[in-house]
């Protein structure tokens, strides 16, 4: 493992040279991730690693892509998707237009899951799905809609457990170990790079999903990001987090009402 002071030196340099601010990330995970790239790329001394990061913007980009945790799934936590399908999306469906933001979308599995449900509910044509991440590389994968075929069986199970009744294999074409998801699904998706630490609100949404991203942030940054979501959410809109995340420490409880026992909160006043 690298040392604490080495990690702080890296955080400082990445901010000073490139403007990416990791100063409010949870240290335990960040330290493991930075150590991982350091050893993976064969460095022996930390100062060599540091000077590589400082002098080589391409390498710095790679490092950032490697330290972010991008593990994701389609229909991760089926009961959560069941609630979206049965309760939340039908409520939003009464509106003329549905705007959804996936913040920290990683390689996009979550976004394609959403599009499948919207399509089945007959709502996709009047929806728009903004999907953002700090990591440019994962956004390229997300745009392509191509996911490893070996994961598809689990995804099909998750889909079914979340209330899906169609033939899941109708949504993709399998080829050489990959599944390419249909362009009908991606038509309404807009992908762009957005940093939750430093970028501002860019639209007003009816539903914001930010799942398993806040766990990488300390309490202060969590608070700032939840307030960014609050600024970006229409009244009566919904905010959805990961199963072990909460807005409890971040925002006045009188403003949001939790939806049953799911990690979904409705904004009840401006």
């Amino acid at each position: 493992m690298i040392e604490d002071i080495e990690l702080e030196a890296l955080i400082n340099d990445v901010y000073e040279y490139y403007g990416f601010d990791f100063g409010s990330y949870s240290r335990a995970s960040l330290k493991r991730r930075v150590s991982r790239v350091f050893y993976l790329d064969g460095f022996k001394h930390f100062h060599e690693f540091l000077s590589k990061v400082r002098t080589d913007p391409e390498y710095c980009k790679r490092m950032i892509d490697e330290i972010t945790v991008n593990v994701t799934e389609m229909f991760r936590d089926p009961s959560f998707y069941m609630t979206l399908r049965k309760d939340i999306l039908p409520l939003l469906g009464t509106k003329p237009f549905i705007r959804i933001w996936h913040a920290g979308c990683s390689t996009g599995e979550e976004v394609y899951s959403m599009a499948i449900m919207l399509k089945e509910l007959g709502l996709l044509h009047k929806s728009i799905l903004y999907a953002t991440d700090i990591n440019a590389a994962v956004l390229e994968t997300a745009k392509s809609g191509i996911f490893p075929l070996r994961m598809i069986k689990d995804y099909a199970d998750n889909y079914r457990d979340s209330g899906g009744q169609e033939d899941f294999s109708d949504y993709y074409i399998a080829n050489y170990g990959y599944a390419k998801f249909s362009e009908d699904l991606s038509e309404k998706m807009v992908f762009s790079q957005h940093n939750l630490v430093s970028d501002t609100s860019f639209n007003e949404f009816d539903l914001i999903l930010c799942r398993n991203v806040l766990i990488y942030f300390d309490n202060n940054l969590q608070k700032r990001v939840v307030n960014l979501f609050d600024d970006s959410l229409a009244v009566l809109g919904f905010l959805a987090l990961g199963t072990k995340e909460t807005i409890k420490y971040s925002i006045s409880p009188t403003k949001y009402k939790q939806f049953e026992r799911e990690k979904i909160w409705r904004k009840i006043k401006e």
Partner: peptide, 21 residues
């Protein structure tokens, strides 16, 4: 420790979660 997350310890005497591989 909840299932499906790694459990980590922070200096601030809190527990944090991580979904890495």
């Amino acid at each position: 420790a909840p299932s499906n997350y790694h459990l980590l310890f922070e200096k601030e005497k809190t527990l944090s979660l991580d979904t890495s591989e």
